[in-house]
Amino acid sequence: MKRSNRLAWMGAIALAAIVLLTLLVAPNNTKISTGSTFNRASDGYGAWYAFMQQKGISIKRWQKPFSDIQAENSPVTFLQVSAYPRETTLDNQEREWVEKGNTLVILGAGARVTEAEFSTMQKSPQGEIKIDTRRRYQKANSKQVDLGDRFGAVVWEKNYNKGKVIFSTTPYLAANAYQDYLSNFKYLASLVTEKGNTVLVDEYIHGYKDADVRKKESEGDLSSFFAKTPLFPILIQLGILLLVLTWAQNRRFGKPVALETPVADNSEAYIQALAGVLQKADSTDFVVEMVGKQEQLQLQKALGLGQVLLERQALINFWKEKTGTSAAELDAVLKLQSHKQPISERELLSWLGKWRSIREIRNS
């Protein structure tokens, strides 16, 4: 296989290996924007956020870690739309914050899948709420359930001292996909504005961060990015690439092709060497003599005249008799070789050309 084709195959295999490895090892961040108010897709909350602003409700996007909310003096309602089902238990930091009188609203809480219909309409003071999930929370008592059916709760709340947590089994309670169901938008608005608290929407969990946060977390430049990049996937990719390169340098892609041993032509090599020597010695007369004899013998053989060199005139007469053509060129070549004097290279080439013409006439 040609080297260019081998390199092409090598590059294609290396690229395919890197792409495959990237797909297998790289973290799946395709759902990180689910629930974000910056997201205009069907699973985003951009339409609901605009709805809240049009209603004149004070709402802000929060692009900092949860721990930074601790500095707030007034009660806060903090809305989190989780891209993945999260536990219904709080960590110590969240629990302490809620117990101070704040409200945490979690859309996308973990719950088991039941036999409920996937699409249902749940009754509420704001109207019928469209719910698309079979997940139901079955450990809440009737006082805690805000939306639900016989299979369990869809939306429920749990008190923690002065504050409370509101859970929803669906993260799409008021997503962009439900713009035709205004009651869904109103219902979520009622949940977050129930106590008249400052409303914050968590965008930090969707990857949006304030400039000071990015700087604090050392994500502002390329060097810090590489410093935080996991080395294991990179090392695996480099290892596969090195293996492919090593294999390509030592093996062909395809059946091995045996090299043909060139056949040495001693006669041709001798003739070329002798021609080089004669050319340097300017011995054209020797070339004319030797070549002329061989050409004349071949001509006599073709005319049936034997292997003894004839006189020039005798050969000319036989040529005319046998071929019926002019013997001018034959006479010219025979005269030149009988002079036995050095000639120029141009004259030598002309002389050889005339012998070629004679052979063509002879063979025709």
Rank of each mutant, 00 (worst) to 15 (best):
L24N: 03
S218P: 01
D43A: 10
G239E: 01
P262G: 15
E347V: 05
A50C: 10
F253G: 05
A17F: 03
Y270H: 09
A12H: 02
E217R: 12
R356Y: 03
A174S: 08
V98I: 14
A269D: 09
R359Y: 01
L274K: 09
A302N: 09
N5Q: 13
Y178E: 02
R6C: 06
A227P: 00
K158Y: 06
I13K: 04
G254D: 06
R3F: 11
V244I: 15
K123Q: 12
Q307K: 11
A16D: 01
L235G: 07
N102S: 04
I106H: 01
I205C: 04
Y270T: 13
S42H: 11
N29S: 04
A211Q: 08
Q122Y: 07
P125G: 11
A258T: 08
D180E: 12
T89Y: 04
G276T: 10
I166D: 01
Q179A: 10
A273F: 10
K216H: 13
G239T: 15
D149Y: 04
T169V: 14
A17N: 08
E345A: 12
Q337S: 13
W9D: 01
Q337D: 04
I166W: 00
S74E: 07
N29H: 13
Q144D: 10
S357N: 12
F38Y: 12
Q341S: 15
V244N: 04
F167Y: 10
Q144R: 05
Y84A: 14
K164S: 08
